[in-house]
Amino acid sequence: MMLAAAASAEVGSEVTPSTPEVVGFTGAFAVELCLLALLAATAVAMIRMRRLFGVAMLSGIYSLLSAAFFVALDAVDVAFTEAAVGAGMSTVLLLSGIALTAKVEMPVSRTRTIAPLIIVGVTAAALVYATIDMPGFGDANAPANAYVGRAYIEQTPSDIEVPNVVTAVLASYRGFDTFGETVVVFTAGLACLLLLGAGAIRGGGRNDDGEH
């Protein structure tokens, strides 16, 4: 590494060897911090809001913001999916669900929020304690990034020759997983059909199967 730095100096460029270990306050850092702050604000607003229409909209906004955050973290495929599914599909679903159930949530008494707060606090403390042992953010040699993930990037040009490694892993290396996911989506669609769909197939209307 020192040699490389020396080499770049030899070429006669004005590049100075940087110190990459310290994350500086760069533009990317500022963007990430802003997005995370916006995400947190949206999440808190979702707790406080009682009109479910507004909560559904906030959850769409949350999805869109997280899609932007995914782009900042290089996950363009995931961002694309999250923007299409989270901000589009799931908001429409939540709204149609709200139209069929309730518009406004009943207020929750203060005393009932204490136990959840304690549970959530303990869980958060445990998780934060766990992150102390984790490799730092963006560490290329972290166990999560070092083995199979790197192998996929190295092997894709010779095995599959598809530029998009995510597609290669999705459809070829882990085709079996994706098959399972497709079957899960299919099954969920069938479940919706069974729970609600009989009426939808026969042209709308509820099916009164006698609970009333």
Binding site: V92, L93, S96, G97, A99, L100, A188, G189, C192, L193, L195, L196, G197, G199, A200, I201, G203, G204, G205, R206
Partner: peptide
């Protein structure tokens, strides 16, 4: 299909 199932339901 999911959308049809929800939207086809009479509120």
């Amino acid at each position: 299909q999911i959308f049809y199932a929800f939207a086809g339901r009479e509120p």
